[in-house]
Design a protein around this nucleic acid. Structure first.
Lengths: 132, 132
DNA sequence: ATTAAATTGTTATAATATAACAAAATGTAA
DNA sequence: TTACATTTTGTTATATTATAACAATTTAAT
């Protein structure tokens, strides 16, 4: 269950922008888009992004240095994330699949060690791009 | 099966350095370390890194912007990679686990889509750091 | 030997991210 | 409701990561 966080002004502005975006957004693209709202410096963006990631409202797509809103209530506090990424159009979709998340959450390495957190990125062609 | 690639001079210098390193190396740390061997510019490093990643001799740890040598003959051409990362000491280990790699290679999303490639990063505490 | 392809060297610059510190807003407890 | 601590903000400067563009050299395949 998510603890509800009240977002601050900057966090809300930046979350709203990312949440509306159909694709992952990069930090400086976010900055450009919120300058008219008074957010002028990279650090203001990065601080909001850090917090939003921390509380699980957005995720960072590590291979792309870009951010998307979380639409998966089961990825508690960003501790278990999985995405599919189209290598042509760069469309990113968050995967929510019980079998996958259970498998990974319970995965033990050869020393019997379990992990508190994971991030998985699948790459391939999305439906649209496969057809072309 | 890996096609054997003959590394070029710069590629060999940079691969040897990464291969000897007990921890992932960052691009500018690599640059600093190979300057005495005549590699002077970032681009020379990045070009070698790109090629080494492409042929599967090294992997990029995306969440750390760092590179480690591959010690896993089964991760054909860097198409299927999994790592454990200690959040305290930053030790990174490549995971080679048949069950895991089979599970992920065969994973289909809800549209029945399979992926040609994946990268998985597990986070937690390594044995040493857990004890402390 | 000729030539195409890959690699290298080099300068400049783009893109991503953080340090440091002061000011303002917010939360909490008497 | 004031005092105090904490968090958030604003701001300037700078660090870190990565690529563009183009000429020169080396390598591989005829």
């Amino acid at each position: 269950m998510h603890k509800e966080h009240t977002l601050t002004k900057n966090q809300q502005i930046i979350f709203d922008l990312i949440d509306k975006s159909p694709e992952p957004m990069k930090a400086y693209s976010i900055l450009f888009n919120v300058q008219k709202k008074g957010i002028k410096a990279p650090l203001q963006v990065y601080r909001a992004l850090d917090k939003l990631v921390e509380i699980g409202k957005i995720h960072k797509i590590e291979s792309r240095n870009a951010f998307i809103a979380c639409h998966n209530s089961s990825c508690q506090m960003a501790k278990a994330t999985a995405f599919s990424i189209c290598e042509i159009c760069e469309k990113v979709t968050e995967i929510s699949n019980d079998s996958l998340s259970k498998y990974l959450a319970n995965f033990k390495d050869k020393d019997g060690m379990k992990y508190s957190k994971y991030n998985l990125e699948f790459f391939g062609l999305c439906k649209k791009c496969k057809v072309k």
